[in-house]
Design a binder for these strands. Structure first.
Lengths: 234, 234
DNA sequence: TCAAAAGTGTTGACTTTACACCCATGA
DNA sequence: TCATGGGTGTAAAGTCAACACTTTTGA
């Protein structure tokens, strides 16, 4: 697979090729979920001694025969059983000592999925959803990765029709607004929010109503087909 | 330096550790310059047979003992002699076959520098400035990297005080506007542009005027100290 | 006195914000 | 009939886009 590299730098020869391959590449997935009116993230208990008691993001080394997007899909699939999710690359983190076992550069992705709808096969492993507000410290530099990913999500959320991946197929405008409020961490005015969303023309009115409520039911919407972005463009 | 990795995945054991280290990591720098009212990028002739006659970005493998930002600074320093430049990470590119000599994942950075002011030591190597408009094809996936970086620069340019790195220390509003026009690829209204810029409060009025012009000279400005971003935060 | 670019304000269109009342439902 | 949230419009403030004339300088 990999012959010797021939990049043109006078410096290269001074260092053996093996040294260069002493860097491993991983992908870490910030898997956001939404449930109980809260934004959550899927974490696993770290099994490294150095990080005993801490949680970490879901990650794995990138294999020689898969590209970065494929690796992030694989990690999601392996850990959650899901493959119809939205993934977006965020940033590469490469501090020398970010991984205690060696030099690992990681590419962070964030992913959005509806907790209730996608009943994960979480039973027999140590994956758990954690409310963002309760996360103070994570293993590795994963808190920094989480913060960067959340900021990136916040920046995208009003520009691109991405958040629908966090909701069930059918949702009311109230549910959508509560989701936006969770992501942005601010309260929104109901009338202004509805205006802003309706201008974007992302929603399909389903002519259906909520049911089983002890108050007036709202209309149900779904995201229009052309904006369903399970798979990643970019 | 690198002991065996202990990431927790059932799959890991199936693949030898050596395979994982068969991936190399490089940094590619999209070095933007501005001269003659045009946005340019610094390219080098590719020395790979596969890309004969094509140009490529300036890149190099990341060393085991340097982080990504350090690697990008080193590349800039080695190639241009400059170390007071602004660098911003853009994206990681990891397609399997993007490098003909093996598996190389690259992290792209863009950099901004004033061509006239920083007289590079370009004499004895094959670095040249190329107008963006004339670049059709580059070696590797570097055209894609360039396009992504330009888009990223365009998105930042009105939000953050970054473009001043492309100009001499003192500049007129006309020069600044022409630069914005080159980056964004559109014409701007002079009065509206000045209003927009003055609202941002990035500029220091130097109480100096242009000289040696055959027309009315404009006032000179510099970017305020607190917004000089030679070094990268993020 | 001409050519070239500097400098400057206003208007109308649009966008954003703040804000309050009546309605439909189930308990 | 009450509690709960659904649904809706308007006015004021702010932002953005379009647009033209006078001034300064050197040649």
């Amino acid at each position: 697979m990999s012959k010797a590299l021939q990049l043109k730098t006078a410096e290269i020869e001074k260092i053996s090729h093996l040294d260069y391959f002493n860097i491993a590449v991983s992908v870490d997935c910030v898997i956001f979920g939404y449930d109980d009116k809260e934004l959550k993230v899927l974490l696993i208990k770290s099994d490294l001694e150095e990080f005993e008691g801490l949680y970490s993001l879901l990650g794995d080394l990138v294999r020689p025969d898969e590209d970065l997007d494929t690796a992030s899909y694989r990690i999601l699939k392996e850990r959650t059983g899901l493959d119809d999710v939205y993934l977006e690359q965020v940033h590469a983190f490469g501090e020398i000592s970010r991984h205690p076992s060696g030099r690992v550069i990681t590419i962070a992705y964030y992913s959005l999925l509806d907790i209730k709808n996608h009943k994960l096969k979480l039973s027999n492993n140590e994956l758990h959803w954690h409310s963002l507000s309760e996360i103070k410290k994570l293993a590795f530099d994963h808190k920094k990765i989480l913060d960067t990913s959340l900021r990136s999500l916040q920046e995208q959320v009003m520009e691109q029709p991405v958040v629908f991946n966090l909701l069930p197929e059918k949702f009311s405008l109230r549910e959508l607004q509560e989701l936006y409020e969770s992501i942005l961490g601010i309260e929104l005015d109901r009338r202004n929010f509805r205006k802003k969303i309706s201008v974007k023309d992302w929603l399909q009115d389903l002519n259906e109503m909520e049911t089983n409520l002890s108050h007036r039911p709202g209309k149900l919407y779904s995201v229009k087909k052309q904006y369903q972005r399970k798979m990643q463009h970019s």
